Amino acid sequence: MELHQLEAFSAVISAGSITGAGRLLGRSQPGVTRAIQDLELELGYALFDRKGPRVTPTQRAFLLYAEVERSLVGLEAIRASARAIGLDEARPLRVAATPALAAALVPRALARSGAPADTHLRSAAAEQVVDALLSRAVDIGIATLPLAHGDIDLHYVIEAPCVAVLHHADTLTQAASLSLSQLAPRGLATVANRYRLRRGIDRAFEAAGLRAHVVLESNASLNAMMAAQAGLAVAIVDPATAFGTPVAGVVTRALDVDIPFFYGVFSAAGRPPRDDVKAFVEAVETISLELLPGAKRHGAERHDALVARREASGSLHASEGAIA
């Protein structure tokens, strides 16, 4: 298969029509049609169901799209690096992070570290962040634990306690900190990935003999905070979102049980980081410790022990004081 075929396929998925894809690519409609037909012929199966001028991707097309996009993004990164090398310019810094960490930490760390003017930031699920790094599409990744992959170098792990976010008029804001027994009867909004942060939240409620009444779960903590702003629910979220992307009309309170939020900064194994990558990694650590109340840094060798701690039945270390 050829590059122009993959570009045509990606454009048709995005535009929803052959005509729209042609406009995106600056190609003729017959040229795009021929590229798709040739690709389908080579693959041996249809990628689109045709209905007049509109096309509908098949299930196989959606499965292929993720692979094609990863390849095209990686190719564009190579092109950018090649241009920079040819002009004797600094190569772009390519970062991938989960949405909460991308919004809360990366811009601040870039400003602190004096990163190159040409920086590429991708926001994706933790598994996709790891995938982007392993495929060499990015230079550095920031994602929640676990991060036990053999082909990455974990630089360190940051731990900080989760918090509750409430509508400013909620009666629970009168308390300096909140217990799970206070939150259990309420509708809760939180994250949905059961193998990462959500696992720690569920474990804490189980350890207290309680069941969380989740009325909204999302792939992004910011959505849970917006639910609190709307008065729909009390949000239990990671501290990066709560303190890094503040929302008007809500109040943040500590929990009297420790629900740790763990994330790591990592790069490709056996690939010594460039100076700008090193500076960025150091800046993420500094920003994390400054921005997140109660944040701690752990060495990479603590990874397995930290994951095991989260898997335990729950910690009962009280947090002190309110967080405004």
Rank of each mutant, 00 (worst) to 15 (best):
F205N: 08
L72F: 06
V215K: 09
L222R: 13
L43F: 07
A82G: 04
L25N: 05
A235F: 07
V265K: 00
I13A: 05
A230W: 07
D38Q: 12
G44N: 02
K51T: 09
P272G: 09
I13M: 15
A235M: 09
N223H: 14
R108L: 03
T173R: 13
P273S: 02
A204W: 07
D153Y: 06
A103L: 09
V307I: 14
R309M: 14
D275E: 13
H4E: 12
T56N: 05
R79K: 14
D275P: 07
L222A: 12
H168N: 00
A97Q: 01
L64R: 00
G31S: 14
L43Q: 00
V129W: 03
D118K: 10
A242C: 10
A80D: 11
A103I: 02
L47E: 03
A283T: 07
D170G: 06
A100L: 05
Q182Y: 08
L291W: 03
G74W: 07
D304S: 15
A207F: 04
L43C: 06
T171Q: 12
L43V: 02
A233E: 02
L110I: 15
L147P: 04
G74K: 04
G114D: 10
Y45F: 15
D153F: 03
Y65S: 15
E67A: 14
A212P: 07
A192F: 07
I158K: 01
F243N: 02
P57A: 09
I36Q: 03
A100M: 02
S113M: 07
T144D: 05
V307C: 13
I158M: 04
R108C: 02
P57C: 09
A61I: 02
N219H: 13
A132Y: 09
H298L: 06
A117P: 05
E290H: 01
V32K: 01
E2V: 05
I158R: 03
L24N: 06
V165Y: 03
T58N: 08
S181I: 10
T56G: 01
C162D: 01
F205H: 10
R23S: 14
A111M: 12
R94H: 04
R136Q: 13
G270S: 04
Q37W: 02
V247F: 10
D304G: 10
I18M: 13
R297Q: 12
P260Y: 07
L306H: 00
R70I: 00
V191G: 06
A220Q: 13
A125D: 13
L72A: 06
F266P: 01
V251T: 11
D139H: 08
L87I: 00
S113W: 03
R211V: 14
E67Q: 15
C162Q: 08
A164C: 08
A82F: 09
R79V: 14
T98Y: 06
A305N: 05
F280Y: 06
R194C: 02
S81L: 05
A269F: 08
A61N: 03
I201N: 00
A318G: 09
D151F: 10
P246L: 10
S315L: 15
V191T: 14
P239V: 04
R302W: 04
M225F: 11
A228D: 02
D49V: 13
A102V: 08
S113C: 15
P99E: 04
